[in-house]
Design a protein around this nucleic acid. Structure first.
Lengths: 206, 206
DNA sequence: TCATATTTGTACTGTTTCGCATTAAATTCT
DNA sequence: AGAATTTAATGCGAAACAGTACAAATATGA
């Protein structure tokens, strides 16, 4: 499925690496302010090569969003390792998020989706779809863990797993926004800690 | 302070109304994708008039952000009317936010600051400053009410007003993002209700 | 070896962009 | 009434922009 030798001249670049470089450009500048020259320079690809490999600017952007989304889902699944207590799971979710959000050259970049796709979502339906789906999938994954928490007695029987999941996500959304707004790591970590306590704190404390 | 007749030709437009129209353009398209032609058409002002009145595009954008911020602070202050119970206060904060976030032509526009300033915050320091200040001021205002809640016994003495305030804001940040991502009013209202319960729910329930 | 297929690089096109220069219009001060 | 001052409207110009045409380069298949 991979070694089917294609006919013509082979590619001189790694599409995944190029996509990663393009993602960084979008992450820093957003979709609208990222020019094809920026993307071309960052990926070391001429514009025609970019078009050939990924389509137009919006296609390329959607590709980076989709890749980011899948990476995020993988990170989330790891953080939610069900052999750990719920409290630790949510703390790990936030820690993983902050590790990503706080990585930036000039200023922290936050979340690629929340930070850059939100703007475009109003006018670009495809972007809105990816953003909405990403947020929902994230909620759903956490909800599963919450439901397990209720079964296990980590959460009271009266707890609403869906709503708890959405509120757990909400804290993460806020971390994403605040990171991009320039809040310090200390502040963000404090919010994450308080969020964990509020959402699943009543569980461990008798 | 207002009727000091200036020397030259008087303005044929209302600066506040123009700013409001410009704000709508930025709200829908974001800063980068909003062209001066868009802004000129929406405000019924030629480009030179825009420059004369507000400066360049970034200046105009910052003006709209500042106005939005102040409107938001006023709405917040009303919602936090201390003669009402804390529970109602926070519910009113979210209701007020949703009333603003869900108002859009094609799709809901969310929060102007979170939805459009976040992208620019990384590269435009002045935008990052306004965004950070706005989030902080919002937190601080809610924190005051939380502190009052502790004094009054609406919240337990052990409650951390600052952190509760930041988490209350977090729910609102999430509403802003989710509105722009296309979530329904029902979903958003449900999240708001759950947020109120989680943050100040343990207070009213004996 | 030669045709076929794909990628690469240069250069181009037409549009959009921002910001300003310039002139005409409207008002106040003297 | 005329000078001074501010705003309005037209329109310019230089740069940036997205996307593509075309030819050279590099591989496979016959």
């Amino acid at each position: 499925m991979k070694d089917e030798k294609k006919r013509g001249r082979p590619r001189a670049f790694d599409a995944k690496a190029a996509l990663s470089k393009a993602r960084d450009v979008f992450w820093d500048r957003g979709f609208a302010a990222a020019s094809l020259d920026n993307l071309s320079a960052a990926t070391n690809l001429n514009r025609p090569s970019l078009y050939g490999a990924f389509g137009d600017k919006e296609d390329l952007y959607l590709d980076t969003l989709e890749g980011y989304r899948q990476d995020g889902m993988n990170t989330l699944a790891e953080a939610l390792d069900p052999s750990l207590p719920l409290h630790d799971n949510i703390a790990r979710v936030y820690a993983g998020a902050l590790a990503i959000y706080l990585h930036g050259e000039t200023a922290a970049r936050g979340c690629l989706l929340i930070g850059t796709a939100s703007v475009e979502a109003v006018q670009h339906e495809r972007v809105r779809e990816v953003l909405g789906r990403s947020l929902n999938d994230f909620d759903d994954e956490i909800e599963k863990r919450m439901r397990l928490g209720v079964e296990r007695g980590e959460l009271p029987q009266s707890a609403d797993p869906q709503m708890l999941a959405r509120l757990a996500s909400a804290v993460m959304h806020s971390l994403a926004v605040r990171a991009r707004a320039g809040d310090s790591r200390e502040t963000l970590e404090a919010i994450a800690r308080s969020g964990v306590e509020l959402i699943c704190g009543s569980a461990n404390n008798p």
